[in-house]
Amino acid sequence: MNKLFKHIIVLGLVLSAFSCTDPEEFTAAKNMPYGDWEVAEYFVNGQTQGSYILERFTLERDGTFILVDSNDVLFHGTWTSTETSLTLTEVGGSSQVFDFEIVFLGPEKMHLRQVISGLDLEIRYLMNWSNADNY
């Protein structure tokens, strides 16, 4: 009985030690979630919009992406990320570059900000990770 009581106390101490540790910050540079990201909502210059410019994109583990816009136009290329930004660079075609500021990134949610300076336009995307089971 005394031995069982000691084991319970040790187990309690171990559990309390783990509950006091701070979780590691989730960042794009360390652990960007691969897979399909779908736009849940987007804002242009602070106003909610009904249709989306970008519908979804898929980030692959090998550094490639597939992006589909609202007109079902398909872009593909490579992606890179830092702590605060995500860059999608199209391969071939017009070699278009999509630069996003990462406002928030979690395992299943992302908030991206895109500024298009020639048009004085700011677009904010609220995104959901849609197929976590496949990646």
Results as ranks from 00 to 15, higher is better:
residue 1 M to S: 12
residue 1 M to D: 11
residue 3 K to M: 13
residue 4 L to E: 14
residue 4 L to P: 08
residue 5 F to Y: 08
residue 5 F to P: 02
residue 5 F to H: 09
residue 7 H to R: 14
residue 7 H to E: 12
residue 9 I to Q: 14
residue 10 V to Y: 12
residue 10 V to G: 07
residue 12 G to T: 13
residue 12 G to W: 08
residue 12 G to I: 11
residue 12 G to Q: 10
residue 14 V to M: 06
residue 14 V to L: 15
residue 14 V to E: 07
residue 17 A to D: 07
residue 18 F to A: 03
residue 18 F to G: 05
residue 18 F to E: 11
residue 19 S to G: 09
residue 20 C to N: 13
residue 20 C to W: 03
residue 20 C to A: 15
residue 21 T to H: 08
residue 21 T to K: 11
residue 21 T to G: 02
residue 21 T to I: 11
residue 22 D to G: 03
residue 22 D to Y: 06
residue 22 D to A: 10
residue 23 P to Y: 07
residue 24 E to M: 08
residue 25 E to D: 08
residue 26 F to Q: 12
residue 26 F to D: 09
residue 26 F to A: 11
residue 27 T to D: 01
residue 31 N to Y: 00
residue 33 P to N: 08
residue 33 P to D: 08
residue 34 Y to D: 09
residue 36 D to I: 07
residue 37 W to H: 02
residue 38 E to C: 00
residue 39 V to L: 02
residue 39 V to F: 04
residue 41 E to T: 11
residue 41 E to M: 10
residue 45 N to S: 12
residue 45 N to C: 00
residue 46 G to N: 09
residue 47 Q to Y: 08
residue 48 T to W: 02
residue 49 Q to Y: 01
residue 49 Q to K: 13
residue 51 S to C: 05
residue 52 Y to F: 14
residue 52 Y to A: 07
residue 52 Y to L: 06
residue 53 I to W: 05
residue 54 L to Y: 00
residue 54 L to H: 04
residue 54 L to E: 03
residue 56 R to Y: 06
residue 56 R to D: 02
residue 56 R to G: 09
residue 56 R to L: 08
residue 57 F to C: 01
residue 57 F to E: 05
residue 59 L to I: 05
residue 59 L to K: 01
residue 61 R to D: 13
residue 61 R to G: 07
residue 63 G to M: 06
residue 63 G to D: 10
residue 63 G to H: 09
residue 64 T to E: 02
residue 64 T to V: 05
residue 66 I to V: 10
residue 67 L to Q: 03
residue 68 V to T: 15
residue 68 V to A: 04
residue 68 V to L: 10
residue 71 N to D: 14
residue 71 N to T: 08
residue 73 V to E: 10
residue 74 L to I: 15
residue 74 L to N: 10
residue 74 L to W: 09
residue 75 F to E: 02
residue 76 H to A: 06
residue 76 H to D: 14
residue 77 G to C: 00
residue 78 T to M: 04
residue 78 T to S: 02
residue 79 W to L: 01
residue 81 S to T: 12
residue 82 T to R: 03
residue 82 T to K: 04
residue 82 T to F: 02
residue 83 E to P: 01
residue 85 S to G: 06
residue 86 L to C: 04
residue 86 L to Q: 00
residue 87 T to D: 03
residue 88 L to F: 03
residue 88 L to N: 00
residue 88 L to W: 02
residue 88 L to I: 08
residue 89 T to R: 04
residue 90 E to H: 00
residue 90 E to K: 04
residue 91 V to N: 13
residue 92 G to P: 04
residue 94 S to V: 13
residue 95 S to L: 06
residue 97 V to Q: 09
residue 98 F to A: 03
residue 99 D to S: 11
residue 100 F to R: 03
residue 102 I to D: 07
residue 103 V to A: 12
residue 104 F to H: 12
residue 105 L to S: 03
residue 105 L to E: 03
residue 105 L to C: 01
residue 106 G to Y: 11
residue 106 G to L: 11
residue 106 G to R: 13
residue 108 E to S: 14
residue 110 M to C: 10
residue 110 M to T: 13
residue 111 H to A: 04
residue 111 H to V: 14
residue 112 L to R: 00
residue 112 L to T: 05
residue 113 R to G: 01
residue 113 R to I: 09
residue 114 Q to A: 05
residue 115 V to K: 04
residue 117 S to T: 15
residue 117 S to P: 03
residue 119 L to C: 02
residue 120 D to S: 14
residue 122 E to I: 10
residue 125 Y to M: 04
residue 127 M to N: 05
residue 128 N to D: 07
residue 128 N to Y: 01
residue 131 N to H: 14
residue 132 A to Y: 12
residue 133 D to E: 15
residue 134 N to T: 11
residue 134 N to A: 15
